[in-house]
């Protein structure tokens, strides 16, 4: 069979896997919806969860599409479609592909024509993310049961435990936002862009929260996160122009 990065066979294989993953999401969604009813969670809460999750997802999903476009120049459309629909993450996949192509002297912007190069890149990308596939089915139950027990033993500590986990994660991302500010002294103002974007997003979120409480506008709470996300992203264009970019150029 003659190889091409956009060979119909690759599309068929990827299509089957994407359909399988879609089936899994629908399966879990239907079961969770049934369970929500049994637990007495109000239908308005469930409906709002569905609609706000769908709306929130649009902007990050479009950003993921940028990754598909970047990878498609060398790997065709089918493989990036698979890697970014299933398991892959925007930041990891591009790096994995770069690491695989470097020893092959393959450029990220030219189409792979050698099937050996293609399968080499595919093996590196697949094996690099294989750990989650193997471990999640094995250890999720143990980890999750252990965490549930904490909440059952001491309810207050269980709540603090849960909040502490989220705060720990959020603090790491807030720290990253400031990673380039030390370069301001050298005249590199680009590091201010992520800081200003974060501030805009936080201020918009706070205003929406205050307004929804004060004026009892419920939809503002439901869509506050997607709105603050979009405002932050839009402000990135402005601040990037003011500060000459969004990251300090590597020398």
């Amino acid at each position: 069979m003659e190889f091409s990065v956009n060979h119909p066979l690759i599309f068929i294989i990827v299509g089957i896997i994407v359909a399988f993953v879609l089936g899994q999401s629908v399966f879990f969604l239907v079961r969770a919806l049934k369970r929500a009813k049994e637990l007495g969670i109000s239908s308005s809460t469930v409906k709002k969860t569905v609609s706000s999750s769908a709306i929130f997802t649009i902007a990050p999903a479009v950003a993921i599409l940028v990754g598909v476009v970047v990878l498609s120049k060398s790997l065709g459309v089918a493989l990036p479609w698979l890697r970014l629909s299933v398991i892959g993450s925007l930041s990891y996949e591009v790096i994995a592909a770069q690491n695989a192509m470097e020893p092959l002297a393959q450029d990220m912007s030219s189409v792979v024509t050698d099937p050996s190069v293609y399968v080499t890149v595919l093996w590196v990308m697949t094996l690099s993310i294989a750990l989650g596939l193997i471990l999640v089915p094995i250890i999720t139950k143990k980890v999750q049961t252990g965490v549930s027990k904490i909440g059952m033993k001491d309810k207050k500590w269980g709540e603090i435990f849960s909040n502490a986990m989220f705060l720990g994660m959020i603090s790491a991302f807030l720290g990253y936002v400031f990673c380039d500010v030390t370069y301001i002294a050298d005249g590199h103002l680009q590091g201010l862009t992520p800081v200003c974007v974060m501030v805009v997003s936080a201020v918009v979120m706070a205003i929406l929260g205050i307004c929804s409480t004060k004026f009892k506008i419920r939809w503002m709470t439901d869509y506050a996160l997607p709105i603050s996300l979009l405002c932050g992203m839009a402000s990135a264009i402005l601040f990037s122009n003011i500060f000459g970019g969004y990251a300090v150029p590597t020398v």
Binding site: A59, P60, V62, A63, V66, N163, F166, L167, I170, F173, L174, Y176, V177, T193, P194, V195, V197, M198, V199, V200, S201, A202, V204, M205, A206, G209, A224, L225, S228, L229, L230, C231, G232, M233, A234, S235, A236, I237, F239, S240, G245, Y246, A247
Partner: peptide, 19 residues
């Protein structure tokens, strides 16, 4: 820049709620 700055835009909003 809008696509590259998705994490600061995301965690600014989320951070304000939790903090």
């Amino acid at each position: 820049p809008a696509f590259e700055m998705i994490l600061p835009a995301l965690f600014g909003g989320l951070g304000v709620v939790f903090i």
